[in-house]
């Protein structure tokens, strides 16, 4: 009923408000960084910034996969469990420990990595198939996977951690490339590829169309079930990769790894401005959202603030981001 405001008529304050909504998260990140720079002498050091990036990388990679899913109006609650499953399965192929119960190991690292990613993709494919073929709500399908993947992890590993990973396997979590830690390099590469896929490929256009209006996408000749399936495969594959990064970083694959990781990933996506209603959002926003969470955790640790505050602040941030999203919708 209400006519939208003509574009040309925006006054300066309207314009400032519009920019605030568009770049709010980036501004928040910069403000927090400036504050921390003055509050703690070590914050703005190269090593600490690399720490922040390293600590953000796993959540960031999961959040990038989550962005694809949320853009199609879905959600993937299973990523935390898939992290554990892929980590344990892949690590069991790259250890000399007999705990793993895999005869003939350790296998070449490439095999272990490949299997880990495939396990993640398979979990995603199952969720995606259930969602797209049987129209089961994503919340339910991936909630099922959250439980099933955790159970499979415990079954596979017999509840024990998989220790003594080979040095080649741990390379991906611990090595540096030109002084940059490998998880950060992986995070950056995945971000660039995801950015390209979403902004410049046909598949990316399909993702936005399916999320924006599945009926219109279907009528336009786009196979929505194929797109829905693929986004869960992407999310699962990236969760699998994150599981291996985590195992490589901590030195062994734990069955309890990744518990509640899905919540941080969703938080990063939402803070980054992607609409849970689908069709709107950018992977750059997600990365900034993940960095904001990472920087705050790091800053509060540096300043010796009790960790429970971090949870309170993160909660407030998520709600604030969605309020911003709503304001954006009302304007449209």
């Amino acid at each position: 009923m209400i006519q939208s405001k003509p574009v040309a008529s925006r006054s300066a304050s309207d314009l400032a408000a519009a920019y605030g909504r568009k770049y709010g998260i980036l501004i928040a990140l910069i403000v927090v960084c400036v504050f921390l720079t003055f509050a703690n002498e070590y914050f703005l050091t190269g090593r600490n910034l690399l720490n922040v990036l390293r600590q953000t990388s796993i959540n960031g990679i999961l959040a990038i996969g989550m962005t694809f899913v949320i853009l199609t109006r879905g959600i993937d609650l299973s990523v935390g469990s898939v992290v554990a499953l892929a980590g344990v399965v892949s690590a069991s192929l790259a250890t000399s420990s007999v705990n793993a119960m895999v005869p003939g190991g350790p296998y070449p690292t490439v095999v272990a990595f490949g299997v880990g990613i495939l396990v993640g993709m398979a979990c995603g494919a199952i969720s995606g198939w259930v969602v797209s073929r049987f129209n089961v709500p994503a919340f339910v399908a991936t909630l099922g996977m959250l439980s099933a993947a955790r159970g499979m992890t415990l079954l596979y590993a017999g509840g024990k951690p998989v220790p003594e990973l080979t040095d080649e396997y741990r390379w991906i979590g611990t090595a540096d490339v030109l002084g940059i830690p490998m998880p950060v390099v992986a995070f950056a590469v995945i971000f660039l590829v995801a950015f390209w896929v979403l902004s410049a490929t046909r598949f990316g256009r399909h993702v936005y169309a399916v999320g924006g209006n599945p009926h219109a996408a279907k009528v336009s000749g786009i196979s929505i079930s194929r797109i829905r399936l693929l986004v869960y495969v992407i999310s699962g594959g990236l969760a699998g990769f994150s599981g291996m990064l985590l195992a490589a970083r901590t030195g062994s694959a734990l069955t309890q790894a990744g518990i509640a990781y899905e919540l941080d990933a969703i938080a990063a996506v939402v803070i980054g401005g992607t609409s849970l209603g689908g069709g709107i959002g950018k992977v750059t926003g997600t990365v900034i959202g993940a960095l904001l969470i990472g920087v705050m955790n790091n800053g509060l640790d540096l300043m010796g603030v009790e960790s429970y505050y971090q949870q309170v602040i993160k909660g407030a941030l998520i709600v604030a981001a969605v309020m911003l999203d709503q304001a954006r919708h009302r304007e449209a």
Binding site: Y42, N51, R249, T250, D301, L302, G304
Partner: peptide
């Protein structure tokens, strides 16, 4: 500070303390 018995949480905590 607490790391809730978790290896990954303790790793993050220690990284930040080594910086601070």
């Amino acid at each position: 500070k607490t790391a809730n018995w978790s290896r990954a949480e303790a790793q993050t905590l220690m990284e930040n303390w080594l910086t601070a």
